[in-house]
Each structure stands twice: as structure tokens, then as C-alpha cells.
Amino acid sequence: MTMIYVLLPLALIFALGAVLAFLWALRDGQFDDTETPPLRILCDGDESPAIPSDRARGDGSQATPYG
């Protein structure tokens, strides 16, 4: 059972990583509009190369010019 003294903190570090990832996404503005993306995915065909993804547009400040 001594393994748990190592594994538990390790698991918590992973959890911390997940929380940080979420907070990054939050700051990136990915949760500001939760309505359009599910619609957008329906029309993401091969003919819409004009729409850059969030990442392609650079950092968070550009993705949300007013954020």
C-alpha cells in the first residue's frame, strides 16, 4: 500500500495539469460563446478554408480582440 504515497500525489499533479489546461482555455476565450461552435461544426466543409481556427489566429488576445 506504500505505493499510494507516490501514486496519489502523482495523480493529483495530473489533475492540476487538467485544471491549468482548462484555465488556459478559459482565458483564451473558448467558453465565451458556447452556442456558435456546435453550429459551426455542421458547416465546416472542405469549402471553408477561409475561417481560421482559434489557434491559427495566434494568441488569446487576438482571438478575442476585446478580452
Binding site: D33, E35, T36, L39, S48, A50, I51, P52, R57
Partner: peptide, 17 residues
Amino acid sequence: EMLPRLIPGVASARLEF
């Protein structure tokens, strides 16, 4: 969001539905 295709010079258009 197809606006960049309609008008050259538009870099991107995003619509919050």
C-alpha cells in the same frame, strides 16, 4: 463567416450566433 471570400481584405469574420 464566408465574408473573407466575398471581400478581399477581410482577414476573418466570426459570428456569435
